[in-house]
Write a protein that binds this DNA or RNA. Structure first.
Lengths: 126, 126
DNA sequence: CTAAACAGTGGACTACGCTCCAAGGTCAAG
DNA sequence: CTTGACCTTGGAGCGTAGTCCACTGTTTAG
């Protein structure tokens, strides 16, 4: 699969994919003419990248655990593990937001809603 | 209140506050010697800025609705409204994450967890 | 009076994640 | 054989959110 099709399938631009290659997020074979050639799984990988990004992971982090994946004895199992980790990240994110929500809800309707209630900004974990 | 104390109280550096002033997030009176002088409420405002940031709002957005606040007839009420809006943002964020969570949970333990299940990446709303 | 602790300015620099561009190579259709 | 779609590279530029620095001015304590 050449870059244009991959870009179309993954919903991003060719430039973005080239950039991802530069930072080690995707790895390309080359055709004899120098064109990049990607295996079809790359589409799924890029979708995963988007998911991980939505969870607040940086490209560097994603690339790092992509590395780990490639070196794992059982890829499927390793991925499952990774996903379980992300589940925890999601859960603590939700917890954070829930705290924030409660905090905000308290202030709605108060005379001076700006007064601190404590516990704001727990710090970015990822 | 001079910049150093404000910085200490709000938990950020003087440079950050000067930067925030530059982008219009805080507005400073000046003492006769040229030093910035902030009213005590600025501490609360900066805490609010941090909260809004944690919700994914950009400084520009925060500055914009800070503007709106200053022009509101009833500041407290306006803030309450703002907070209610943010509550909705939090709620849809949580919903997003919940969807993502379910999606991910599905893939954990599957033979090929990378296969798309649909509905990944709903797009950043803020 | 001097030293330390504060304040001010402008400008350079960083990291991240792209995005765009120019100049050129490759390939299939007509 | 040309046209157009596609590909290559390198490098520049951008927006966001700071961070750091040098140099200078002000205030306060000993």
């Amino acid at each position: 699969m050449r870059i244009g099709e991959l870009a179309a399938q993954a919903g991003m631009t060719r430039d973005t994919i080239r950039f991802y290659e530069k930072v080690g997020l995707v790895t390309g074979r080359r055709l004899p003419n120098g064109y990049r050639d990607f295996p079809p799984e790359t589409v799924a990988w890029l979708q995963y990248v988007r998911t991980a990004q939505a969870l607040g992971f940086s490209l560097a982090e994603i690339a790092r655990n992509g590395e780990a994946l490639r070196e794992a004895p059982d890829t499927a199992e390793a991925l499952s593990l990774l996903f379980e980790e992300k589940l925890q990240v999601i859960d603590s994110r939700i917890a954070e937001l829930t705290t924030l929500r409660a905090d905000l809800a308290l202030r709605v309707g108060t005379g001076c809603p700006l007064r601190p209630t404590g516990g704001v900004l727990p710090g970015r974990t990822p």
